[in-house]
Amino acid sequence: MIEQAMATVLFYGFAAAAMVLALAVTISCNLLRAAVCLMGVLSIQAAFYILLAADFLAGVQVLVYVGGIVVVIAFVVTLTRSSQLLMDHPSPLRMLLAIAVAAGFAGVSIAALWMSAFHQPGMAHSTMDSTRAIGMALLDTGGSGYVLPFEVISVLLLAAMIGGIVIARKTPPPDQPFTSGGDRPGEADAALPKSQRPLRDRRAPQ
């Protein structure tokens, strides 16, 4: 009884906080502040997963999203100096159109949900360990198992990692061999043996 009451209070409290923080993510002019708000939204999402009895997912959410993605986003915000260079004020027309599209989507989909009847089986008060079930399903090679998608997603993550490194790496000009030297022009040349340095940088012989 008291647990259910608490779950209700937590749901509505977290829901209000999530909506406010999500609005802050999309409205805030300072992108670093938006990243911090995004961190709040994602943490609250982890709390929602716990309320939905998906404990393992809550842990993954905190590890991957809050600990990984948001930190990388904050890094890139500072690397690209977005919070100073580009204060993000949408023009009124654009804002109005965006509000119209978002409100239209929300209205249509909520109306559709309201009118559809879901066949709900009796809520089994599942105190079952869903972590164990997820582990079994992920490595199950049978018909209802997920071992193939699990392996495919590992390849996808590897490809994304390599792709990220390759794309973000400093590419040398066409006439210059690639070095792992440094980020500034001079440093990259200094890492090469003398005979391979580009002509313009080679010192005149004594």
Partner: peptide, 13 residues
């Protein structure tokens, strides 16, 4: 749904 709609707003604006 509401969170998704807020995301759409951010995406477009």
């Amino acid at each position: 749904n509401v969170l998704f709609a807020i995301g759409i707003y951010g995406l477009l604006s």
